[in-house]
């Protein structure tokens, strides 16, 4: 345990930047939030420091954004919050959809289990060490990843029933 708990997100950012010199860089914080880019190799360590030393006891959200023009094209975003100090920090990890993927933080936060499954379902980003990386919202036979920017918005993949019934033709024909 570190002796000090940072009182502001900026202090947390400074602490992480010092501790993980090469792995943590400042990211965009357009609305005043503290946002840090973390390399995939170090994300588990960074999150562990936040959880164990800085009392970030709440993984509010873990999500993803697709930037088709970038390389790598995805950013996984961690929204960590401390209920005791009221500090919030965003972490971002750049990722592609290759194996083995971004290290899973499920061992640290059980809430990450379903978040990461949802990211896998919607974007196809994989998480190394995830205990149960399956689709969570869509069905196993669904092809592709629906929230990627290049997923055709008019594509229909019904489990049963006609894929291109009259309704489909009327709307998209």
């Amino acid at each position: 345990m570190s002796e000090t708990t940072c009182a502001t997100a900026a202090e947390v950012g400074l602490l992480l930047a010092n501790r993980f010199a090469d792995a943590v860089t400042e990211g965009p914080g357009p609305v005043g939030d503290t946002c840090l880019y973390v390399t995939p190799e170090k994300i588990v360590d960074v999150v562990r420091v936040l959880r164990d030393e800085q009392r970030f006891d709440f993984l509010m959200d873990e999500t993803c954004v697709d930037y088709p023009d970038r390389e790598p094209r995805f950013e996984v975003i961690y929204n960590l919050y401390s209920l005791s100090t009221g500090v919030r920090v965003f972490l971002k990890v750049k990722a592609d959809d290759s194996e083995p993927g971004v290290p899973s933080i499920t061992p640290l936060y059980r809430a990450a289990n379903w978040f990461e499954r949802e990211i896998y379902d919607m974007f196809g980003v994989r998480f190394a060490g995830h205990p149960d990386l399956r689709r969570i919202l869509l069905y196993e036979s669904f092809k592709g990843h629906a929230l990627r920017k290049d997923y055709d918005a008019t594509l229909r993949q019904p489990l049963i029933g006609p894929a291109d019934g009259p309704d489909h033709a009327r709307r998209h024909g």
Partner: peptide
């Protein structure tokens, strides 16, 4: 009846397709 405004990848576009 038609899927309504859920014109997306996850919604049945009218139960009369089933």
């Amino acid at each position: 009846s038609t899927g309504g405004f859920y014109d997306n990848y996850a919604t049945v576009q009218g139960i009369d397709t089933i």
